[in-house]
Design a protein around this nucleic acid. Sequence first.
DNA 1: TATTAGAATAAGAATAGTTCTCATTCTCAA
DNA 2: TTGAGAATGAGAACTATTCTTATTCTAATA
Lengths: 133, 133
Amino acid sequence: MSDRVSTRQRRLLLEILRETGSHLSAKELFRQAVQRDPRISLASVYRNLHLFEELGLVDGKRLDRNCCYYEVKRSRQHYDLVCNCCGRVTEFESPLIEKLVGEVQERTAFEVTKAVLYLEGYCKQCEGQSKKP
Amino acid sequence: MSDRVSTRQRRLLLEILRETGSHLSAKELFRQAVQRDPRISLASVYRNLHLFEELGLVDGKRLDRNCCYYEVKRSRQHYDLVCNCCGRVTEFESPLIEKLVGEVQERTAFEVTKAVLYLEGYCKQCEGQSKKP
DNA sequence: TATTAGAATAAGAATAGTTCTCATTCTCAA
DNA sequence: TTGAGAATGAGAACTATTCTTATTCTAATA
Ligand SMILES: [Mn+2]
Ligand SMILES: [Mn+2]
Ligand SMILES: [Zn+2]
Ligand SMILES: [Zn+2]
């Protein structure tokens, strides 16, 4: 597994992802990486994020129209809550998703390999903003 | 509502979306529109898709990394199953999603305004392909 | 019907995220 | 130490989408 995480660049990128703990865009990851190793290139960031995903080390999620956000994969599956107002991302777990997937597989004979799910709305700090422009 | 759907271009775009019944990308919608009205522009497609979304006539969903897919909004909410192999999109409904949203709102005090959900996998015709490259 | 102000359009330039290309550099097994 | 193959950096290319602006259209009014 970590067999293939053998270059300076890969070690650095994983390190940052692990320290940060959540939801970095490629651009932001690049920004942080450059501070520690000015020679790293954006191409390496993308290249290695794809590799990490293939290796199952990292999860990439599209939490908005613009770009993908990456985070180290944890043992427990979770989903995200994205605030329309402040942009903060919080997380939740629920057995209902597994249940939903099970039901769909039975009912439709579709073999599910991945559930893409996130919820948009307003976090506690931003509540009431929903009526604003 | 249809007040503002008053131009030649808007009528044509809605017509195509309604006839097709599902899941057109902006590009594909433009391709079809050009056949009936060679003077229409891609900018009008995007401009009016956004308008239709605001008016609640159309739903835009990002079903893959690349682009948004649009379909006329129907009375009953549904979610999509996207086949990794042939790309076909099928649909399903389930009360579990509403239930999930309710639970999350109670548990986390996050006010949900939208659930973004689709399932990836293999459709009946493509089953068994999951072990392939 | 003619006028006209404001809305919408076409065309293409601009932008942003991502992927690709390829010459150069690195890694590691022999 | 060497050399083959893997990985990188730099920037070009690509793709979906948004923006800009001169022109055209719409619809309310006279
Ligand atoms: Mn997360
Ligand atoms: Mn659908
Ligand atoms: Zn917030
Ligand atoms: Zn299929």
